[in-house]
Amino acid sequence: MTRRLTAFASFHGDPDLPAYIRYHLAALRPFSDCLVFVSNSPVSASGKDFLASIGCEFLQRENTGFDFAAWRDGLDKFPTEDFDEILLTNSSIIGPVRDLSSVFAQMKPFDGDFWGLTTSFGGGRKHLQSFFLVFRKPLITSRAWADWWRNIEDLHDKNEVIRRYEIPLYRYFEKAGFSGSSFISPPRKREMTRPFLRKREGTLPVVPAMRYWTNVTIHSPVELVQQGFPYVKASLIWGHNRRQGIDLARLQQMPDLSYDWDIIQP
């Protein structure tokens, strides 16, 4: 039986905890021997009562360092070596829109040390997108793991967090002798330069772009869910990527999805 610690980093506007976060936490609970909610935002008494009701640990912290610093502080509260797997996730994704059992079942035979849901080539370097990362015991108990978290700083710029932590993470652990992969297979070489029209603000409403040198979770969200991806990026619904648009009607018609779409209406 796999013992799994899940650390959920959150930044939210509603101290009672938005419905989509409550749903996400409840869905993660059956897959987590220990679930800790690390909040960079205030949490009300109602929010704390909900966390207690699902047996979720709670850590309140200052809003510094984004998700990597939140995970660092959350992991510091537990004997991580006691767990077979550690799952890191955050409030930037909505879902799961399908049962996570299939994701964990498909990744169980993976003969590697860490995995994410998607591989990205944004920034020109292959990396795992950091909104959902799973690490296994050989890596968790390594010197490389301890050194990685010891060196996480409270950065104040999100792009700097991506540049210093999200993008290098894959290569860092690979160089330390560990292997990683993703649930959604990386695109084949011939797909890397498949062009599409990218929406943007300004004088030109759309511009040509190369699909896999952009963020596939933002620019092809419905197609990604069709491939088995169990989430939707929150920024497509009410955040800075809302201009991209997402065809929620197509998602709602997919027979293999199960989600209360009313809780994410803009």
Rank of each mutant, 00 (worst) to 15 (best):
F104S: 03
L100M: 15
V103F: 12
G74F: 11
R98Y: 05
T64F: 11
P109N: 05
D82V: 07
D99N: 14
G112H: 09
E57F: 12
R72F: 01
L88N: 12
I94S: 08
F110L: 13
D99L: 08
L88E: 08
V97N: 00
D76T: 15
W71D: 06
L100V: 09
F58T: 00
Q60V: 02
G95K: 06
N63G: 13
D84I: 04
M107H: 07
I93A: 11
L87C: 13
G65S: 12
S92P: 08
F58E: 05
D49V: 10
F68P: 05
G65H: 12
L88C: 12
E81T: 14
Q106A: 15
I54M: 04
F58W: 09
D76R: 15
M107N: 06
S92M: 06
M107A: 10
G55E: 13
D76H: 15
D99A: 14
K77E: 12
L51Y: 06
P96T: 12
L75S: 09
D111N: 13
G74H: 10
L51R: 01
G65P: 12
L59S: 04
L100S: 11
G55D: 12
T64H: 15
S91R: 00
W71K: 05
L59I: 11
D113V: 02
F110D: 02
L75H: 03
G55P: 09
T89F: 00
W71L: 06
E85T: 09
L100K: 11
L87Y: 02
D49S: 15
A52V: 08
G95W: 05
F50Y: 13
N63V: 02
F114M: 03
S53C: 05
E81Q: 14
R61G: 01
I54S: 04
D99K: 07
F58K: 04
A105W: 01
D111W: 01
N90P: 10
I94L: 15
V103G: 00
M107K: 06
F66M: 06
P96G: 11
S102I: 11
T64M: 15
G112C: 14
I94H: 06
S91Y: 02
A70T: 04
I54D: 02
I86R: 11
V97Y: 04
V103A: 02
T80P: 05
F58S: 02
F78A: 04
W71R: 08
A105P: 00
F78E: 03
W71T: 08
G65F: 11
L59Y: 00
F83H: 06
L87M: 12
S53N: 01
W71E: 05
C56L: 07
A70M: 09
K77H: 06
I54R: 07
F66V: 07
D73A: 13
L87W: 04
T89E: 07
L51N: 03
F66H: 08
G95I: 06
S102L: 08
T89Q: 08
E81P: 00
L87N: 07
C56W: 04
E85K: 08
S91L: 00
G95R: 04
K108H: 07
Q106E: 13
L87R: 01
I86N: 06
D82L: 14
D84L: 03
V97S: 00
L100W: 07
I54Y: 04
N90R: 08
